[in-house]
């Protein structure tokens, strides 16, 4: 596989729920290796469904999904398990198993690689343990190894979630609203961490995100989804008022766009002081 080959390719992806709701109306999308792509759109646009169709937590109704050339939609159970190992997923509200320790949660990312009895007895290979320690150190949680997941703060939990996804040694990260329940400062730290790690490991990432400003700040490419269709696909600075109206509907967007540029500049300088007072989620609250 050469460096420019697409990591993820969706062809005419359709998802119709048993209730009759058409969540995805034939989405075509291609994500090359190493690209961080943000998926924005109003609630109910199908962002979450799209991400879950990729690792088939939600079964697509029709269409094809290729991961590095392998078609995922045809795989049987064991093939799907092997494919899922190559896709790390980071969840909204963290989705850590709360009654397990931090270490057990991180190691659960290796479940696709070890047999049942090893995982049942918690006898993971030492190489996995080493990698878990390395990752926890990287995100600054190496002192929390034996804490139970429900004893951590939101930001700490999401870091554990990131470690769990990365220890899978994935080629693709699927990230579902990583900052939905975090405060603005922690949100930025988490987004920065995800993007840094993607750069370090040359990972492709699809990030569902509610917050347009964060998306513009961190993603190289933005895809706007509306009612199950792609309505924008381009660079972050291409998000004009017209584009946002296309995605979200009529609203005064000038403030969002302006402040974004200001905030992005400040971000490079250091502490995001403006963002603290800005409360981007409040601004977006009226839309959903």
């Amino acid at each position: 596989m050469d460096a420019n080959a697409s990591m993820l390719r969706l062809e005419r992806l359709v998802k119709r729920y048993p209730t009759g709701d058409l969540a995805l109306k034939g989405v075509d999308l291609e994500v090359p290796r190493g690209q961080v792509m943000a998926l924005i759109g109003p609630s109910g646009a199908g962002k979450s469904t799209l991400i879950r169709c990729v690792n088939r937590l939600v079964e697509p109704t029709s269409g094809r999904i290729y991961l590095g050339g392998e078609e995922l939609t045809r795989l049987g159970m064991s093939g799907l398990r092997r494919a899922r190992r190559r896709m790390g997923m980071i969840f909204q509200e963290y989705a850590l198993v709360e009654r397990l320790t931090v270490m057990e949660n991180v190691l659960s990312g290796r479940l696709g690689y070890v047999g049942f009895w090893r995982s049942f007895l918690r006898k993971f290979p030492q190489s996995d343990i080493d990698e878990a320690f390395r990752l926890l150190e990287r995100v600054g949680l190496d002192q929390m190894v034996d804490k139970r997941a429900d004893a951590l703060s939101g930001g700490q939990r999401q870091r554990v979630g990131i470690c769990r996804a990365l220890i899978q040694n994935p080629q693709l990260l699927l990230v579902d609203e990583p900052t939905a329940s975090l405060d603005p400062k922690t949100s930025r730290q988490i987004m920065r961490l995800i993007c840094e790690l993607c750069a370090e490991r040359d990972l492709a990432a699809v990030i569902n995100i509610h917050d347009v400003m964060l998306a513009q700040m961190f993603a190289q490419r933005i895809v706007g989804l509306r009612l199950g269709e792609v309505v924008y696909d381009g660079p972050a600075d291409g998000l004009t008022a017209e584009v946002l109206t296309d995605i979200y509907g009529e609203e005064d967007w000038s403030a969002t766009i302006q402040k974004d540029e200001g905030a992005a500049a400040e971000e490079d300088a250091g502490e995001p002081a403006a963002a603290e007072t800005l409360r981007p989620d409040e601004r977006m609250a009226g839309l959903t």
Partner: peptide, 25 residues
């Protein structure tokens, strides 16, 4: 359901899913 879903997304088998995703809960 989110906790169990997260364990399934790692590619674990059915028994591993029970052991990590459901049993602790």
């Amino acid at each position: 359901a989110a906790q169990a879903e997260a364990v399934r997304a790692t590619g674990g088998g059915w028994f591993q899913w029970l052991n990590y995703g459901i049993q602790p809960q």
